[in-house]
Design a protein around this nucleic acid. Structure first.
Lengths: 328, 328
DNA sequence: TTGTATGCGTTATCAG
DNA sequence: CTGATAACGCATACAA
């Protein structure tokens, strides 16, 4: 293994100059710099991260805690990961994925996609490491506001989806919610209700279907029920999977989409692409969200002053109108 | 930060004994061991990986090179990753994901899910690190046989899928292949042809549709063409996405599934779950494949003798019969 | 601008 | 079975 000393010898400088050339090139004379760089080239020298970490107490590694349910092959988190990784690798940081907080591997910062409870939060504080949350971490209450986070504008998203159907002349609009004790779903329901209220429509309790598993089958069986027993002509779903289930139900009931029933999905990652007819959906910029998560973390890692305030970013989703919605 | 010296002082032993207690407990007297363990408990001591890595030249990190196209949110690779991570974390190894071979972070071993060419292979040899391939790495030719790999039995899979349709009385069976210069698709076609030959059926060239993008839309438009101009009653697809496209085409042509057309998918990860009717598919044990990849790598990392032969595992997929296939 | 001495926390070596 | 010492490769502090 070639070390700074090998490089130093070849470049006719001291090891220190090599180190500087690597970390603070501006503090080295152009001539020395050039000689060092040539030597590095020639020897194919690579910094030893372990030695560097030992003395700088930094690792070049960012830890990403993915939700446990990720194992169930979710395109959403794959896209999120891709966004995170893209920014991190630009900054020469590696991503380390684990499904729990504790581990023996050290890291410079951590991105949490799911913060279960106060217990996790306390562990987090013990680590005293830069951290960014995906989602408001609402279950932490006030504590979450002291941390950086990036979240989707769930309220606005559902509002836009509902307004889209309303503007097409629909009035009997159902909401299909999958089960989650995450506040994001509460906000989506609020967005739906806000839009309905603005159009002066009383929401029939039967229109709001909640507690669903997030699968097309769960949505399908519920949708068959709702569509058979009510005059609903539009459905807002909180995921594309649910929307696909509703479309399957409509097919079984011989309701044409979009002529007799309009359906809006939510997420726009993966599943919407394979729906027939093409799904109108609220498309989340998941890749971008991942990038922002990474960017905020990097800023915090690089912040020496330690007085960076907590930053909170709320990102908008965009309604992509395709073939599953039409005028009533 | 507490170090071995802190622990040593508290346990009334030397730092060396602490180190031994951690790495070779059997070489320490039971009394000392107990005192050290207690001290570790009490102080909440954690090994400094960087320092350890510096001297042992090991990192506790396994690198996983995912295909670049992963960014496109593919449930297949998410499942594969989950399998890999499960085994690795059991062995206190962390997973580091990157999309290219080179990086400054050191690692103990590497799992490659996509080996592009000889160039990559040469880089690999320079690293002289334990490596396991996902897939035969056929494009490396002979070289691949010197490496460990795990692959699916593509031939058998396609053979089983085709045989299933044949046993249901179908004779005009099409094959939908997505575009890939990977040998796995060649093998799948061979499996299809073998089954057809065994039933004494001549394959009509029009039945074999290749060069498709791996999307439901690509399959749909092609399928409309094929189904309109031939007497095909069964379709074997090389992915679930293609199968979904074929089903969409059938719907558009008013062909009932499975009464008028039987369709078999391939993969059984993610997309098959949301198909209507439920998709008969060749289900790959992707999670298990991931686990095997990790296991082989760990064995190679732990192998001191350095004379472990290259191991090659070929894993079978299982035909899961659901509602998209029926007797002719 | 450059170089020297020193230490980061751990384990290998070798002596006891 | 145990301990003293050196070394891993790099960067910080200080001196030149």
């Amino acid at each position: 293994m070639t070390t700074v000393y090998d490089v130093a010898k070849l470049a006719n400088v001291s090891a220190m100059t090599v180190s500087r050339a690597l970390n603070n090139p501006e503090k080295v004379s152009p001539q020395s710099l050039k000689r060092v760089q040539d030597a590095i080239q020639q020897l194919g020298y690579q910094q030893n991260q372990a030695a560097r970490a030992l003395v700088t107490k930094s690792t070049g590694i960012v830890k990403l805690v993915m939700p446990k349910r990720l194992g169930m092959s979710d395109p959403y988190f794959t896209a999120l990961f891709a966004g995170i990784a893209s920014v991190l690798s630009e900054n020469r940081l590696a991503v380390l994925i684990e499904d729990e907080l504790s581990s023996t591997i050290k890291y410079d910062g951590i991105i949490l996609t799911e913060l279960h409870d106060e217990h996790s939060y306390n562990e987090l504080l013990k680590l005293s490491t830069p951290v960014v949350l995906f989602g408001k971490g609402q279950r932490l209450g006030e504590m979450a506001n002291q941390l950086d986070w990036v979240d989707l504008n769930h309220f606005e998203g559902a509002y836009l989806a509902t307004q889209h159907l309303l503007s097409l002349g629909h009035t009997a609009i159902a909401l299909f919610k999958f089960d989650s004790n995450d506040s994001s779903l509460i906000e989506r329901e609020q967005g739906y209700r806000k839009a309905m209220a603005e159009y002066g429509i009383d929401v029939d309790p039967n229109w709001v279907v909640s507690g669903l598993e997030d699968t097309s089958y769960a949505a399908k069986s519920q949708a068959i029920d709702v569509l058979s027993h009510s005059a609903v002509t539009g459905v807002v779903c909180t995921s594309d999977l649910l929307a696909i289930g509703v479309i399957q139900a409509a097919r079984e009931l011989n309701r044409k989409i979009p002529q007799q029933l309009s359906v809006v999905g939510f997420d726009g990652v993966g599943y919407d692409q394979m729906c027939d007819p093409r799904l109108t959906t609220l498309c989340q910029p998941v890749f971008w969200i991942g990038q922002r998560l990474a960017q905020l973390l990097i800023e915090r890692i690089q912040d020496k002053t330690n007085d960076l305030p907590a930053r909170h970013e709320i990102i908008s989703a965009e309604l992509v109108v395709r073939d599953s919605t039409a005028v009533k």
